[in-house]
Computed example of a mutant assay.
Amino acid sequence: MSLNSTTPAAGAHTVADATLAREDVQQLLGATQQPLRFEDCDFEGADLSRLDLRGAEFQRCNIVETSFFGAALTQTRWLRCRARQADFASADLVDAAFQSSDLNNTNWRRAKLASASYHGCKLTGAYFEECSTLGLTFVESLLIGAHLRGFSFRKATLQELDFSDADLAGADFREAIFEGGSLKDANVKGARFDGADLRLADLSGVRLVDAGLFRGATISHQQAAVLVTELGLRVL
């Protein structure tokens, strides 16, 4: 392990420009009681499963195909990280924050995501199943083709979220407000939209598998024409 390690006045123990394996991280955890801050570090393919990294910060790090399975990651911060195919399954990510990060094709199965946030992230193909999500927020993020079955977005304000081709079967959007974004070609079978405001969302390609799917939702005249067209009817 070749690294530049410092302990700034702010209290975090900073590691910069290092390539780190599991043994290196364990050594760092054993050497300090302070939260760790990783800057421009490379963890690609590393097995960091079940490690206690509570309060750690990851800035501009490469965590492609890294395993955080079952890890303690509460109050962690992730900024501009590259995390394609990283595994966060069963990890504790309560109050974690991800910003401007590539999280495409990541696995979050059974993760604890209460009060976690994703802002400006790429989550194409991300797999969320059996997660605890109370207070979870997504802002200006790509969720194209993501697996979000049964997710609750009830009463949430959804800012520029792209759910194109996502699996939203059984999701709860009751009283949600869509500020832009897209549901294009999404699977919304069994989803609830009662009281939702969908006027700013792209609804093209939505399949009306249930005639009452959008009962009680607010849509624009233009969207109504699109949905009627999906039913094979002509609007003259």
Rank of each mutant, 00 (worst) to 15 (best):
A146Q: 08
G195P: 00
R199P: 08
L208F: 09
S132Y: 09
S164F: 01
F173Q: 11
L148Q: 13
L208I: 05
K155H: 08
A146K: 08
T124M: 11
F173R: 02
L213E: 15
D165H: 00
I219H: 15
R192H: 14
F128M: 14
F128N: 04
V209S: 13
V188R: 14
F193N: 10
D194V: 03
K122L: 13
G212S: 03
S152L: 03
T124C: 14
L203V: 10
A146M: 11
E160V: 13
T218P: 00
A169H: 07
L123K: 06
E179M: 04
A146P: 12
G180D: 01
C121R: 03
K155T: 10
R192P: 04
R215Y: 10
K122H: 12
Y127V: 10
R154L: 05
G150T: 11
T124H: 05
L143M: 09
A191L: 08
G125I: 13
S132P: 14
G135P: 07
L158K: 07
R154H: 10
S182T: 01
A186G: 00
T218G: 09
A201Q: 07
F151L: 06
G212E: 14
L142K: 11
I219W: 03
D202M: 02
E175T: 15
C131A: 09
V139E: 09
L148W: 11
A201W: 14
G150W: 07
L200H: 09
L142C: 05
K155L: 05
A126E: 13
F138E: 13
Q159M: 07
K184E: 14
A169L: 00
I177E: 11
T133D: 14
L158F: 02
L161P: 00
F128Q: 12
K189Q: 03
I177V: 02
G170C: 07
A166G: 10
D167M: 01
N187P: 05
Q159L: 08
G135R: 03
V139L: 11
C131H: 06
L213S: 06
G170L: 11
E160N: 04
L142G: 08
T137C: 02
E160R: 08
G125M: 03
A166N: 01
G190N: 05
F153R: 08
I177H: 08
A201L: 06
T124Q: 05
L161M: 01
F153A: 11
T124P: 05
A126Y: 04
S152K: 03
L200I: 02
